Each structure stands twice: as C-alpha cells, then as structure tokens.
Simulated scan of single mutants.
Amino acid sequence: MVEWKMNRETGVLDRMDERQLGYFFDVDDTLYDHLTPFRKAVEAVAGVNEAFPYEAAYHRMRYYSDLLSLELGGAGAMGTGSPMEEMRRSRFQLALAEFDIELSMEQAAAMQAAYIGCQYEIEMFAGARELIAELVRAGHVVGLITNGTGEHQMNKIRAMELDGLIPPAYQFVSGVVGWDKPDGRIFAHVNEVTGTLPANSYYVGDSWRNDVVGAVEAGWTVVWFNHRGTAPESEHQPHYTVKSYAEIAELLL
C-alpha cells in the first residue's frame, strides 16, 4: 500500500518512500554515560565512598524523574520555574532516601546544581559518533528523540557537537514537540516529519519504559542498549538487546 504525507512547505501530498530507513537514538545514557554527572553530584554533596551503589541509585533517580515529570504533565508542560526545580530536588531526595541518605532541601538543591554543572561535560560512548556518521554517509535518515526541556537537552546535543551530523529538524526534544516518550504520538510525529514509516524505523535507547515500551508500541524496530544489565520491566519484547556500540554497529550496518 502506498502511503502519503502532507508537505508542510508546499501544502501538497508527497509519496513516502517505503525503502527509506530511519535510525533514531535516545540521548541520555544512550549516546553518553549519564551516570558520570550523577556520580560526581552525589560524591560532592553526600560525601559517600566508592562502595556506594551509584548505579542502583542512578536508576532510582531516573525512575523518580520520569514519575514526577509525568505528574507535572511532562517536559512540555513543566517549562522552567518552581515546579521544575522542586521536581529536580525531589527526585534526588526520594532516590537517595532508598539508600539511607536523607537530603535536606538545601542539600538536594546543591546536588541538582552540581549535577547540572557537569552534565554538559559530555564524552560520547566509544563508537557512537562513528556509527552515526556512517549511517548518515549511507544516506539514511538519522535523528534523535529525547525527553526533557528544549534548552537543557539541546545544550547536551551541542556539547556532543552533533549538529554537523544530524540536522536540527531531526532532533526531537519532548519539551519542544509536546509529548514525552513513551507516548506514541512523539514517534508518529517523528515519522511524519522525516517521511519515514514505522516498519522501517529503528530506535536505539537504554530506558525500558521510555524507549523499549514506547518504540515497540509505535511499531518500530527496537534496539535496547542495555549496557547496565538491567531487567525487563514488562512483557514488551525489544527486537535486539546489545551492550556496546560495537554490537549496535554490527547490527545496523
């Protein structure tokens, strides 16, 4: 069956190329190690030692971040100001309380400040940039889909110097688009804008809830970047599970 999409510039229908492959990547903890700024922030404020279970605490922080963000209406609704700052403090308080560290509001604010302060000191995972560049050279549609506020996420993308590889029009930030993963509308929006079809779209991401669940339900092919060895959280089935960019490159290229 031939599918069509409306060209927003010309106002006419364009035929969608059924052969066009689209490769899309999550940002946080998929393109770069998101644990690094978390670890630095916890060390700076809580003064814990090497034995502290940073990875487990990090997962709980991301859990509360998603939960509290959803309660506030998602990244598109939060914007900036008090609700956003309170959410960012609370996620640290709730997560670390599970590890017997009680943070005052002042400590949580200091931890958030330290976290943001080093979040843009980004070093991409080995092989990530090379893979993206190779997919672009091969003529595929390549893009990013990430949850968060526009300015915050775009600062990370710029820190990784990805504008030269991925067109800004293919950088989809939930706070700008209006829907947070795993909402299927953000994946449908990406297909519409890029002229790709769900059946020919691949998504690489680390988050089970946001990336695996969201992309599977959108009808995309899902590559779960499970580099932290976490357990599935539902009955959804990623098409591929990998632990390194060497594996991802072997699969996609």
Rank of each mutant, 00 (worst) to 15 (best):
V45W: 00
T146N: 08
A108E: 00
H236E: 14
E50W: 04
R228C: 05
L135Y: 01
L70K: 15
A169R: 14
R60H: 12
A75I: 00
A199H: 11
P238Q: 10
M124E: 07
S104F: 05
S82C: 09
P53K: 12
A77E: 14
Y245R: 03
F92S: 02
G219E: 07
A215L: 14
D17I: 09
M87V: 05
D163L: 12
R185K: 13
L13F: 14
A113N: 10
V204L: 11
V213N: 10
G143I: 04
Q20H: 11
S90I: 06
L251F: 12
A110I: 02
M87I: 06
A133P: 02
G81Y: 12
Q20P: 01
A188R: 15
R91K: 12
L251D: 05
G22Q: 02
Q171D: 00
E233G: 03
G150S: 11
R60A: 07
Q107I: 04
R137A: 15
I166S: 02
T146P: 08
K243D: 07
K243E: 13
W220V: 02
M61P: 00
D33G: 09
N226F: 07
R88A: 14
H152S: 09
R158V: 07
G11A: 14
E9P: 01
V27N: 09
I248Y: 07
E86W: 08
I116F: 13
L251Q: 12
R15W: 15
Y202Q: 06
S174W: 09
E247F: 00
G139Y: 04
H236L: 06
P53D: 09
